[in-house]
């Protein structure tokens, strides 16, 4: 479970911190284990131009949150919107098993919350399948 790439992102998280005057942000937690993630986003020319996160969570969740920032940065809004769990899990590169799946996917959920807030759209059932 704790492979090189996970430990690397856990110990040296990319894009960790806060963006003052972010265009959008969102926060959520996993009540069962207390994992917490916040994303801050900035947009420019229809793209995710900047993304940072803060959080207190387990290694799987933090590594996934860090990898997600690299994945979606500079993506067009539509690409970011359709970025789904298969893509994230294959980047994370492990099968977290049923008990840790929520840890790995919490960042994606929070990112989507922030993105949809910016788009001014409601998350539909179709969109939910992506997270």
């Amino acid at each position: 479970m704790y492979r090189e790439n996970i430990l690397d992102h856990y110990k040296h998280p990319r894009n960790r911190g806060k963006i003052e005057h972010a265009d959008s942000s969102a926060h959520d937690l996993n009540p069962l284990c207390g994992d917490e993630i916040t994303y801050y986003l900035k947009f420019e020319s229809g793209k995710v131009s900047e993304i940072k996160f803060e959080g207190s969570a387990c290694a799987i969740c933090l590594a996934s949150a860090s990898m997600l920032t690299e994945e979606v940065k500079d993506k067009k809004l539509e690409e970011a919107r359709t970025y789904g769990k298969e893509a994230l899990l294959s980047t994370v590169g492990i099968d977290p098993g049923p008990t840790r799946l929520k840890c790995a996917l919490l960042p994606l959920k929070v990112f989507k919350l922030a993105l949809y807030k910016h788009l001014g759209k409601k998350i539909t059932e179709e969109d939910e399948k992506l997270v």
Binding site: Y2, C33, C58, A59, C61
Partner: peptide
């Protein structure tokens, strides 16, 4: 600062 979940995972392994 290690999250309890990670501690539990190590034990499980």
């Amino acid at each position: 600062r290690i999250h309890a979940h990670d501690v539990g995972q190590f034990a499980d392994e």
